[in-house]
Each structure stands twice: as structure tokens, then as C-alpha cells.
Amino acid sequence: MSTIQVLSPGLLTTVQDLGREGFGPLGVSASGAADSLALRTGNRLVSNPENAAAMEMTLLGGTFLFPEGAVIALTGSDFGATLGGAPVPLWRSVEVTPGQTLRLESTRSGARCYLCVHGGIAVPFFLGSASTHILSGLGGFDGRPLRKGDVLQIGASNAAFCPETLTPDALRKLSPRRTLRVTPGPQCDWFPKSERQKFYTSPYRVLEESNRMGLRLEGPPIALSPEYSSGGMITEGVSLGAIQIPEGGQPIILFVEQQTTGGYPEIANVISADVPSVGQLRPRDEIKFELVSWETARSALREQESILASNSLISG
């Protein structure tokens, strides 16, 4: 079996696939790739099923030795990757010869870069998924971020290498957005119209204390209507991409490793098509929110899926 040796892990590198479904009643959220579009396209480039497990790197990449070689693709943000000293293009399948070392540096664009490998990264499944749930220390590689000296197994592979590239058109259409489209949250009526207007016209900055559970934002604080300001919301289930307004009025976007329930009013919810863009936001990035209709949200998701399903996604 082929392996990947972790010579240096980078800042926060975990094994992720598309996450686990159906364990919400136990308080277990989906986890999975923060930028699922980058993971899915990366897997396609190396002839894997879209949900194969890959490495998710955050802000600063690692250094990896491939003693037996491999076919890989790097997707997401540009971490200045080199293979045996030569630059490696993103969004393209690349052959790694036995003994070569892949080195990634700090990001030149967004928050996350994915290292997909033909055959996938082989880790034991936990609750039907290879994804790491960092907070609970479950899933992925030993339930934790990778460390120096870790050796990852690459799943069985058989396809011969053929170079594949994401087409420029697909890349453009799937690129991350800085204006996140949202639908109204279940408690949007708890906020006066003037506060909602402030939310939709002001820029918000991503704070350092952001992670896979949630992104903390900073900007003009949003206040509840007086009749709701005494608190007293009953804890309820929360959705991926929910935007909570806690005391103090600074928004939090609940993300892939989200808490399953929460007790803060939600003003809005990032549409599913834009959730992968959240995975590319770095601390200090500035974002805005744009309210769209339910129909717009639905058609954006359908359109994204049709790009992924189209023949013009990848060219040889």
C-alpha cells in the first residue's frame, strides 16, 4: 500500500470527506470539508468518487513525502506548492514519482487548500465518514489534526495517470464569493427593519477566533427589537450557515463542525451554494451579506450541481 509521510503538518491539517449525515439526534454535526466544492473537484481530477477523503490544510500548508509516488491534485487556495522544487499548478492532476516531496507554504489567496490523492486517504470510518471532528476528537486520522511523523495510507488505486485540468470556465463559476447570499433566518422578525438594513449594508470582518465550528465577525452590532431583547429564546436545532446574533450583536456564522442546537436568534442563513465560499474566508477578510429569495437559493444550488455534472468541467 502506498503512503504519505508527514514531514511537517502545517498549521491545521485534517483528513476530511463530505461529512456524516444522520447523527444530529446524538448531537453530532456533519463536519466534512470546509470548501466542499474544492474537495469534490479535486477528487474528480484524480478519478476518485467526489466524497473520497483528502487532506484539508488551513492557512499554512505542510510538507509531505511520497515514498511510493502517487497521483495528486491540489485545489482550493494557492499555498505556493512545489514538488521536488518545481511549482505545482492548482486544479490539475499531477504525477508524483516515488521519493518526491511536496512542500506547501502559507496561503496566497484563501483559507484552505486540499490535497487529493488518487485512491483517497484510507482511514477507518467513524459513523460512515472519514471526516475529522476536531472538537470531539473523533473520526479522521486518530480524531486529530496531523502531526509530524504521521504516516497516512493511500487507498487502493488502479487507473493509469492521465493529466486532467479544471476548465477555466468551471473555475470561474465555482470561485469563492465575498458577498455571501443569504435567506431570512427563523428569528429575522426579532430584529427591527433598521437593524436588518444595517446588517445587509455593512461590511463585516472575519475575526481570528474563527474555526470549523463557526466564524466570528466584527462590524456594526445588530440589536434585537425591544420586545425580544430580554433573551429567553428556547434552544432549537440550527442549520449549516446559520448567522446567529449573540449578546453584543456581533454575528457568528455556524460552520461545518457546527453545534447542532443553539439559543441565539438567527437573523439569516448563508445559502447552500455559498457555504463552500465560507471555507475560504481568512481572518481579517471583509464580507457582506445579500438577501436573496428562496427560489434564488434553490436555483443557485441547482446551477452549481449542473456545473459539477457537466462534461465541460474537466479537460484532458
Binding site: 449525515e21 444522520g22 444530529g24 456533519a30 432549537e236 436545532g237 440550527v238 442549520s239 444550488l301
Partner: peptide
Amino acid sequence: IRDLHPAYCSLLIKFDGLRLTH
């Protein structure tokens, strides 16, 4: 229907938006 998040007096139902609508 992909997941269920029960709470005190509510249930959140997560579904595949490509197959189902609200």
C-alpha cells in the same frame, strides 16, 4: 431527508435541496 436536530419543543429537519422543497 438528511438529518434531524431535536430540541425542547421543536425539530429541525435537514433535507437535500436538489430533491425536496420546504
